[in-house]
Design a protein around this nucleic acid. Structure first.
Length: 414
RNA sequence: GUGGCCAUAGCUCAAUGGUAGAGCCCCAGAUUGUGGUUCUGGCUGUUGCGGGUUCGAGUCCCGUUGGCCACCCCA
């Protein structure tokens, strides 16, 4: 039996990695004053069909539940966010700085970096339309990756501005109904031959190509880069007006994060969506917003491809899973004594394990070693003393059994 | 949704159309109170599944399911 296509088993090692990644995400988000929230995994299909971008609707993971309701496993968090914000925004001081780590789903043929299920960190700053919101959000995206051990030689944030393009379209008297279509063509231009794009763009081809070739200047983006530079983050960003993003709802600054090697899919992406919450709440609540999403699959690939990052995460995994003590029951008649200590030591917060049944002493040391225990406590002929052994140095100390807990505490404190 | 490559032990992979194997992992012993090395032994298979060709199929053919890669598309 295998898991369903596009779904993953998380064996202890995988789970440890995922936990380390989530821990990093949470730690960095909290550093920025973002608070965590979440919504339902399952939503009415209606909500998602109406509110999600049309790109997403064709790949919904949907079905009919036993009550006859049409339901969908969430493909993204934004519709839920809009609903929740519209319903509860008055309870919160602005701006809202919210993050979430939803598991999202889509029904689509899987391939590398793209499964039917993934965890996706979402960070949204809601209720502030100033450039300061862009600066803060993009700095957060950068610091999330730095927190995983990735540096400017590993990834780059490409910055763009939809308003720059819509201004251009307006200047060429393009009717607003066609903006989205043209933005899609520009978005796609990087992935298809020039003449094909030119054909689609028609008379706009010349001015658009001039900008894509570096002829465009955006004062807003230059200001944004300058402010990021004040934080020492200039090496992580690059203005690149060819970024438009596929989703229709972006209204201003948009950005995507890529690995420098150019081997992977986008690591993260986001932008400003000032009108979306208003649209999704049918005009009940109008709040400007900017946010981005970062998936665990592609980021996991980047970390594994980056030795420094891989080692950093491995260290987090180790420190989260290390066993403090393994009790070695050398003489079965002292099992009761050891079990008394187990409870006492665990109550004191130590991570403690011991052999459930009789086992040869050598085997017990092997087990302690392979479980990654830092030290062993041996119960044998020395009783009422126990022999404490630090595995890394092989040094042993005899400790009176009743003083073990306080001895360990004193040793940890020094 | 389209195309190419692939599927053998828990894992990584061998095996001219002719008896299905190795390494790793796991378990046990060498070692009855001391771990990372080493040595010995043991366990594990409807060769993804279903048909066909053949005296004989892991191997060739067809179908099917799953995986990888490239398109399409994109969180």
């Amino acid at each position: 039996m295998q898991p369903l296509p596009g779904f993953r088993d998380f064996l202890p090692e995988d789970c440890a990695f995922r936990n380390a990644l989530f821990a990093t995400w949470r730690e960095v988000c909290r550093r920025y004053g973002f608070v965590e929230w979440d919504g339902p995994v399952l939503e009415p299909t209606d909500l998602l069909q109406k509110k999600s971008g049309p790109e997403i609707v064709t790949q919904l993971f949907n079905f009919t539940d036993k009550g006859g309701r049409e339901v969908t496993l969430r493909p993204e968090l934004t519709p839920t966010l809009a609903r929740v914000v519209a319903a509860h925004e008055r309870a919160f001081r602005k701006p809202l700085k919210w993050f979430s780590i939803p598991q999202c789903f889509r029904y689509e043929k899987q391939q590398r970096g793209r499964l039917r299920e993934h965890y996706q960190l979402n960070c949204d700053l809601i209720g502030d339309d100033s450039l300061g919101a862009e600066v803060e959000t993009i700095a957060l995206a950068i610091d999330l990756l730095r927190g995983c051990g990735c540096g400017p030689e590993n990834f780059v944030v490409r910055l763009s501005d939809r308003a720059f393009w819509t201004d251009l379209l307006a200047a060429h008297s393009v009717p607003e109904e066609r903006w989205n279509e043209l933005l899609q063509i520009i978005d796609k231009s990087e992935r298809e031959p020039r003449d094909k794009t030119a054909e689609k763009l028609g008379p706009l081809a010349a001015p658009v190509f001039e900008i894509l070739d570096g002829g465009g200047r955006s004062e807003k983006l230059e200001q944004l880069v300058q402010q990021l530079a004040l934080r020492g983050l200039a090496d992580y960003v690059k203005i690149d007006l060819s970024i438009v993003r596929g989703l229709a709802y972006y209204t201003g600054v948009v950005f995507e994060v890529f690995d420098r090697q150019g081997e992977l899919r986008a690591i993260a992406g986001g932008g400003r969506y000032d009108k979306l919450i208003g649209q999704l709440s049918d005009g009940a609540v109008n709040l400007p917003a900017i946010g981005f999403a970062m998936g665990d699959v592609v980021l996991g690939d980047l970390i594994r491809n980056t030795p420094v990052a891989a080692e950093r995460m491995a260290e987090k995994v180790r420190s989260a899973s290390t066993l403090d003590l393994y009790l070695i029951i050398a003489k079965e008649e002292h099992r009761g004594d050891a079990l008394g200590h187990v409870q006492q030591l665990r109550d004191a917060g130590w991570r403690v394990d011991y052999p459930i049944g009789p086992m040869k002493v050598g085997k017990q040391f092997q087990t302690a070693e392979s479980l990654g225990a830092k030290a062993t406590v041996l119960y044998g002929d020395e009783w009422p003393q126990v022999k404490l052994k630090t595995l890394a140095t092989r040094s042993e100390t005899l400790v009176p059994q009743e003083k073990l807990a306080s001895y360990l505490q004193a040793r940890a404190g020094s």
